[in-house]
Design a protein around this nucleic acid. Sequence first.
DNA 1: ACAACATGTGCACAAGTGTACACATTAGGT
DNA 2: ACCTAATGTGTACACTTGTGCACATGTTGT
Lengths: 209, 209
Amino acid sequence: MSERKKRKPGETREKLMSAVLTLVGKGRHFASLGIREVTRQAGVVPTSFYRHFRNMDDLGLQLVDELGLVLRRMMREARENVFQADKLIEESVGIFVSHAQANRSFFLFMAQGLAGESRAIQDGIRSEMRYFSTELANDLRRLKLADHLTDGDLEMTCDLVVRSVAFSLTDLMGVSAEDEYQVEQIRKRTCRFLQLIFVGAAHWDNKQA
Amino acid sequence: MSERKKRKPGETREKLMSAVLTLVGKGRHFASLGIREVTRQAGVVPTSFYRHFRNMDDLGLQLVDELGLVLRRMMREARENVFQADKLIEESVGIFVSHAQANRSFFLFMAQGLAGESRAIQDGIRSEMRYFSTELANDLRRLKLADHLTDGDLEMTCDLVVRSVAFSLTDLMGVSAEDEYQVEQIRKRTCRFLQLIFVGAAHWDNKQA
DNA sequence: ACAACATGTGCACAAGTGTACACATTAGGT
DNA sequence: ACCTAATGTGTACACTTGTGCACATGTTGT
């Protein structure tokens, strides 16, 4: 009953997954990738694919799961590095941008999947975003930064925040990672978006009537 | 020198374009479509394709142009139907939603193109959004609804509005057009997003320091 | 050590793909 | 009415694709 011996349990599997990410990173769209192309990129024989995935969508779904891990890691880092509230937005957006650069292909895949052709993958990504949004709401509650908002309004605010950041993602993916200036522009603009949203949230209740 | 005689100048051409829209409407992703598939759907022989387009991306670009027309028509209707400021958001979002339903495939194509694999198409759609955003800014200025904002801040606000609506588009495309309840939920949620943003904009200057 | 299984490989094949070429039809301007 | 250009069609070919099958290899549990 010792199951942790496998020397390379999913070596090919990982090669296939990162082959997809590589291709996506090169500008290809996930929906246009075929099994043969992916196996070729992974340096594996086509039939090997079926040892690990039933089809491309299956592989995509498992990529979404890994994407979840990346996002969680990012969120943890954000929580550890944000000390005072006034720098909250700048710090968080900064961490987001640097993660997006470090895992470019992953986030590219995410951006694609939002309007992709597999409904399951769409739902998976959407679900990750929802999770992210509720966690953000929890944090804001804990930091006492949202005391005047009802749960519903806080949820909505966080949803809008997450959406805006996700949209900035597409901006970010549109410019080369080395273009420091453009990246910086996007970072600043995203911060301003979030500030605007939070100003709106701070003054929300009186308008709610 | 009379050039308007052509009986069916671009009949096949239109058939090809709407064939793409049909396939996209059926849930396919633009990036995964091939020339043969499209011509088959259009009921045309494969080689005809090259009479009108150089490749799929070319066709996509021309679809973006048509999309621009759809968007402009939508904006015109919005301008004609919005009378007083307090219903501005509800009216506009309503018009947006109904247009998105009426031209589902078109908007689906737009949502896909934002993270598609053709850079040119991405830029085209982005450019349409920018246009939309600046027009919105002009309207708000004209209606005296943004007097306390600098041009830059107004531009940012409108950009955020357009992005939020565009993201709602992906929500909308995710539910069946007949699911009245879900569509209504999305409509309401989008309105709340915009309200939140405008509340933020209304109180922006004091925070700007 | 041996049986059971998971994983990787090679081969095969029918189907689909992009596109070149030559030809048929039609439309437009004179 | 005629020439030219635009548009549509059929055939052809080399190539890619998904996937089934049989076999090789390695790994695990007893």
